[in-house]
């Protein structure tokens, strides 16, 4: 099927409530403690089809990371629904009612969603190969030989065939991120989510990571990538999604978004990055 839905985000809301414990002073004076509430997602709808590459753009604090993290339930949504490959995330639906699911069920659903973090988050006590093998063994219960058989080609694919025995402390930022990508890919998820995969890298290391992501996109992997790399987004995305203050303000093919943006926030974003004249 050409337009099989992989991710279906429906009217998702998310509010962060900051620490609710009153301070000693507030308790002593009896002053009411005002909870700080920030509504970060204010009704987001997004559909991602199989094989699509989606780039999410938006200014800092617009809710891009939060949206991505909600999709694999690193954050819990307050309202709305998220389906990945037809499975409702975080809940079971029984007779039209939503019941919070068990942690093991969430874990099972997460194996189908690859996530790449800004700060790599490699297991520091494991080599590059160990990092890629670990979830294959611990989660997929493969034998060491089977795990290695999957891990090695994935590391070779990201260009790290010669660095497999290095610990993260002996890898550059770009290499660490490529290990993280290989680790996520080796689980053969239906979709890969990237949260600013190159933002923590020295400028000269950005290219090698973007090249790997591009290669994965060209292999037909479904992916959503949050990025500030405008040219890269334009280059690889099938669709650009622009977020601002917790909502999607505009989406469309890069050819249109980058040449004829409709929304003022999109225009502001593009002129700030020097793509449109200010």
């Amino acid at each position: 099927m050409a337009d099989e839905t992989i991710i279906d985000v429906r009217d998702v809301h998310k509010t962060f409530v900051s620490d609710t414990r009153p301070t000693l002073w507030q308790r002593l004076t009896g002053k009411p403690h005002v909870q700080k509430r920030v509504e970060v997602l204010k009704g987001v709808d997004l559909v991602v089809h199989r094989g699509e590459t989606i780039a999410i753009l938006g200014s800092s604090g617009s809710g891009k990371s939060t949206l991505l993290r909600c999709v694999n339930k690193l954050e819990t949504i307050d309202a709305g629904r998220i389906y990945v490959n037809g499975h409702l995330i975080g809940y079971e639906e029984r007779d039209g009612e939503l019941i919070a699911e068990k942690a093991s069920v969430t874990a099972q659903k997460r194996t189908d969603i690859g996530f790449v973090f800004q700060h790599f988050n490699l297991f520091l006590n494991k080599t590059a190969l160990g990092n890629v093998m670990a979830p294959l063994r611990d989660v997929k219960k493969l034998s060491a030989a089977e795990a290695r058989e999957i891990a090695v080609p994935n590391l070779e694919m990201v260009g790290l065939g010669d660095k497999m025995d290095n610990y993260p402390s002996k890898l550059s930022g770009g290499q660490k991120q490529r290990v993280a990508i290989a680790r996520a890919l080796a689980m053969e998820p239906s979709v890969m989510l990237f949260d600013e995969p190159t933002s923590a890298l020295d400028p000269e290391l950005v290219g090698e990571v973007l090249a790997v992501i591009k290669k994965i996109a060209q292999q037909g992997t479904t992916m959503v990538i949050v990025t500030h790399e405008m040219q890269f987004a334009r280059d690889i995305a099938d669709r650009i999604v622009v977020m601002d203050q917790g909502v999607i303000v505009e989406e469309g093919p890069p050819s249109r978004i980058f040449t004829a943006p409709q929304h003022p926030k999109t225009r502001a974003l593009l002129s700030r990055s020097g793509i449109l004249p200010a």
Binding site: L74, F117, N121, L122
Partner: peptide, 20 residues
């Protein structure tokens, strides 16, 4: 971050504790 990485790879919370 490592805890989150483990969770995102499908480790359950207790497996994350014991394995990572």
């Amino acid at each position: 971050g490592q805890t989150e990485a483990a969770l995102s790879l499908g480790y359950t919370p207790s497996k994350t504790l014991w394995k990572v």
